[in-house]
Design a protein around this nucleic acid. Structure first.
Lengths: 233, 233, 233, 233
DNA sequence: GATGAATGAGTGTTCATTCAT
DNA sequence: GATGAATGAACACTCATTCAT
């Protein structure tokens, strides 16, 4: 059903493949646009197909059902956001702890390429289904890895974080941003909002550090939380 | 179709009014039950009316549309939760700042006890509509008032809080709890989780205090944020 | 996906023709399999093509429409069954009248190579279209010829049979077997069922013989039913 | 849509009930008409509702799905046919065995008078679903009862019949008639056809009697086939 | 000849809402 | 006020068939 003749060298010809990829892209993009302009209510498969310049049948050739389109959109945006956050935590912009955190917060705030309505709609849809849980799985492992990365090694800035701490660190800021998005708060993109989020996280981290001094044994093999934030399938 | 015949005993008075109130109650309760047992998908007006023992026509006599039922349910639950939080912030349990915060956090975590599915469904529904915004209005003013109450007066514990600060204070903890609910995290009701939430809030408040010393002029009439968190209708 | 590359060895001759025949065979066989495993509901052209290891376009190169595939399958099975029945009536197994009839009945019961579900599905489909009539045409002439064969000539066992008699002789047993197939009766392949069908046919033939003694003039040219059972196209 | 005023006499108030019954009738009748005029292909729920002068929503208020409409129609027609056959077997017309059989055969041939296409369509539809089996259940028990009725008691005409015998007795004639209907044989209603069917059944019964002499012990409690033709749920 | 991406008419079904009784 | 039968717009989804490559 998929790659038939093996691709010889590189993908010399991917005539069909390329076409298919374009079609899928067009559909996902159309979904984002419709969500952005009309919200979840306007999101019908027929409308998406039409906007994508594709027949409804074609849409269903690539997506099992309406939800799959939404999921794909969510996944793409999530992936992009995680990549940015990863870069931010890496210290690519500002290597200080606060610098990293600020970069991460800024990324989270501006995620979804500024398509606030689409973002809102996707969040709503994701919640409306039960798929929020599975969608968060990659986030969860990412957060865990990120926490470990920042907190261990020679230049470790943090002690090992507990499951609950990682969860709260990631979800409290995200929760506040999400609430601001859903409530369409005007200060969402303001400097003040960003400042406060950073302050909150830094303060919390400070409290954690104050209580539990930097882990003297950052060896992952003896990490007290071998699989933090991954307690659920 | 159901308990229509009037209660025989005493309430001879308030014939219509009482009847109407009962009907409304029955409908809201039925809505909660259906949400709890079948999720948002099962929530149809016909079903709610049937469960309430009322005709669909009657339902529409009291509620303009499907949404109104949901809103009413949300409002009732919200009201109850706010009352509890109010009591917590009052220091009824433990008058120290941390004590008040812990009481509040605990209240938020255990809200809607026994109706997690309904809570989730209501949250989803509220988000799915645009009504989240208007629903948060009372919360907003409540939070503002609470912040002022704690932070002003002779025994003021806090400086006046900015709009963004109040927002983050309320939504970050709620956001984390909400995420835990939606993701069905097992540690939701654990002591550790509660501890960390309290720690986060306390740390954040500490940071705020450290930066901006207690407001020397707690007079509400000159409050720098006359209607914090209420910038939107 | 399938036998695409040409067989290298011997069949150098018949290049196109053989290929086409193979393709047609593969499609018909795939149709049978799908019918057998998923019933009529699973029978879609795309699925058949996929199972046959052929593109949907190729399927339509050989079959005008979906129905044609079904018809071809039905025709093949019918042909095989008729050949067997012919052999049975010839007395190849047991030359007595009852022996011949029993052989025929057994053949009818076990027709379609044991693929009961496929048989059922084909019957359903054939009925659902109007094509039952045309499909029965060869059966009709076969029956007519068979009746004549058994009933005429020096060793004639039967008188010439009327149109109605031939029809009933063929369709009553078939009808009962068909019903047993469609109703999925457990005794379909039991000896008792076969015995009773034979008994019914033998009894009926006996009654016919008793009424109209063997035709003294079996000359076909003067047959009273020049085109029995063939009154319709 | 129809007479609203309540039936005057006895069923004083069945206002809604009557309306509902009328609606259901209209739908079933519309289904029969559409089947008769356009065959199974034309049978869509929207079309049925439209022909019934009813909205599609109303149709679904009374029938769970498309199939349910078909089933209801089939059930009604079946019931009527069985009643007629019952009367025939009762010997109401001609009390001799052959007389009863002839009456039954005639009834079967002329069933659904005037609606051959609908009959055909219903048969097809019933087969297309798996519901043929369950639909035949009442027929099965009816046949069993009829066989017992004719075959037992003081004036018993028949020995107890085995499961297979009852099945063949009922399905062979029906099968032949059905084939004649589906193939639209011109002699379907001819006297000759009827004669031959009767002859076949009588001959078969004769053979049965010859082999197994009348049951000396017609006591149902010791019947060798306690539930003939009912081996399947 | 073969391919398979694309098509789109058409289907069954749901459910918020109305209004005659 | 209460009822519930009726409404019908709207939706998700299927699949036989075509045709550019």
């Amino acid at each position: 059903m998929a790659p038939r003749r093996q691709a010889v060298e590189n993908n010399r010809r991917t005539p069909r493949q390329a076409r298919a990829a374009e079609t899928v892209s067009a559909i996902v993009e159309a979904a984002a646009q419709i969500l952005e302009s009309g919200g979840l209510a306007a999101f019908t498969t027929n409308r998406v197909a039409e906007r994508a310049g594709v027949s409804i049948g074609t849409l269903y050739q690539y997506f099992g059902d309406k939800n799959a389109v939404l999921l794909e959109l969510a996944r793409q945006e999530m992936k992009a956001a995680l990549a940015e956050i990863h870069s931010a935590l890496q210290g690519d912009v500002d290597p200080t702890l606060e610098g990293r955190i600020r970069a991460m917060v800024r990324t989270m705030i501006h995620a979804f390429r500024g398509r606030q309505r689409a973002r809102k709609a996707v969040v709503q849809a994701i919640l409306a289904q039960g798929i929020g849980i599975e969608l968060m799985a990659p986030v969860a492992s990412f957060i865990a890895a990120a926490g470990a990365a920042v907190g261990s090694g020679p230049g470790a800035m943090l002690p090992a974080l507990s499951r609950e701490q990682l969860f709260i660190l990631s979800r409290s800021a995200l929760g506040a941003i999400r609430a601001a998005v859903l409530e369409e708060q005007p200060f969402l993109r303001s400097r003040g909002f960003e400042d406060e989020l950073v302050r909150m996280i830094v303060a919390y981290l400070g409290a954690i550090i104050a209580t539990a001094p930097p882990d003297p044994n950052p060896d992952p093999s003896s990490d007290p939380n071998p699989d933090p934030d991954r307690t659920r399938a």
